[in-house]
């Protein structure tokens, strides 16, 4: 079996804490993505999803750093601690990022086409007519109806959905192996959301492109991804095949997420909101970090970090499912 395209081991990301010091906003995340595989990363805001994705090609903002001992391997090559020059060769070329807000992800002062051509030049050495033709091809690949006009337009003339398509075309321009999409549809209309997700699935299948899709919405992940990982307070709390996780969630947090999800089909029940929110990294609780909000919390949950339970590939960290002497494999 081929080694995974992306393999994250024990990733920690430290953010500065007001008043000095640092706290691990991402704390020991393990995650892998195979070639062509689509993986969802789910959690509320503040769970550390975005920091995890930014840590991959080290695009963390100033002051935020990857904790020593972390490992991010791309096709077996370690990226943590790699020189910036090597990272630049990875960014856009091997791993492309699509961000939540297409309005701000595009330079407002440059036309869409010129921003795409810039990537073509930097990563593929294309210029002139070649670059223009490839630009139009990319724009039509992402389903933009009038590529020539779109290429000549500044971003503000496009609608939100078109902008996100343009961002995806930009991400594809470097012919990456992995597309990391951080909440790519959150800022869009509901109807547009579905089309963008379909586009991502289509591109993934057509190009054999791996996808790491970050979302707070399990429904988004369920219609696009093969596997899913649920994050809470800097840690992965449950992971497994999408179908298994959605149908038989192990972690109370996953269950709560599912319950909170507005249903478009079936009987209309009111979403059950999860009380409270994720605390700040500097104030993470001891034991299971979810315990203050967990309806089923045990005494033990307050004191000890829970072990991984469940049968591979569907596993979670929760004391509720722990059976002494068994379970852990």
């Amino acid at each position: 079996m081929r080694s995974p395209l992306l393999e994250i081991r024990n990733l920690g990301v430290e953010v500065p804490v007001p008043g000095g010091g640092a706290a691990a906003a991402v704390d020991g995340v393990d995650l892998s993505v195979a070639h062509g595989e689509r993986v969802g990363l789910v959690g509320e805001s503040g769970a550390g999803k975005s920091l995890t994705t930014l840590a991959l090609p080290n695009l963390l903002p100033p002051g935020v750093r990857i904790r020593p001992g972390s490992s991010v391997r791309l096709d077996g090559r370690e990226l943590v601690g790699a020189p910036t020059r090597d990272l630049r060769a990875v960014r856009g070329k091997r791993v492309a990022l699509v961000f939540q807000d297409p309005t701000h992800a595009l330079n407002p002062a440059l036309t869409v086409g010129s921003q795409i051509r810039e990537v073509l030049l930097v990563h593929r050495g294309l210029r002139g007519g070649e670059a223009r033709a490839e630009t139009l091809r990319l724009l039509s690949e992402v389903g933009l109806p009038d590529p020539a006009r779109t290429a000549a337009d500044p971003p503000h003339r496009l609608s939100g959905g078109m902008r996100q398509r343009a961002c995806i075309a930009l991400a594809l321009a470097g012919e990456p192996d992995l597309l990391v999409a951080d909440e790519p549809t959150t800022a869009l209309d509901v109807t547009v959301q579905a089309r963008i997700l379909d586009l991502l699935v289509h591109l993934s299948e057509a190009r054999g492109l791996a996808l790491l899709l970050v979302s707070h919405d399990l429904a988004v992940v369920s219609r696009t991804c093969h596997r899913v990982a649920v994050m809470y307070a800097g840690r992965v709390v449950e992971k497994g095949p999408v179908k298994a996780v959605l149908e038989r969630p192990l972690h109370p947090y996953t269950r709560a997420l599912l319950a909170a999800r507005p249903r478009l089909t079936g009987p209309r029940t009111l979403p059950a909101p999860i009380a409270g929110s994720i605390p700040a990294p500097s104030a993470w609780p001891t034991g299971c970090r979810f315990h203050p909000r967990c309806p089923d919390a045990l005494d033990r949950c307050r004191r000890e970090a829970p072990p991984w339970v469940g049968l591979s590939p569907h596993r979670a960290t929760c004391w509720l499912h722990w059976e002494p002497g068994g379970g852990a494999s």
């Binding site: 695009l59 630049r88 960014r91 070329k93 992800a105 810039e118 990537v119």
Partner: peptide
């Protein structure tokens, strides 16, 4: 600090390009 500058970096553009074409221009 704008998103599009981070996006430009995410595309693997050199720091000079990021500073001058994307940062300075706007």
């Amino acid at each position: 600090a704008q998103d599009y500058v981070r996006s430009a970096r995410a595309r693997g553009l050199s720091e000079m390009r990021v500073l001058f074409r994307h940062g300075l221009r706007t």
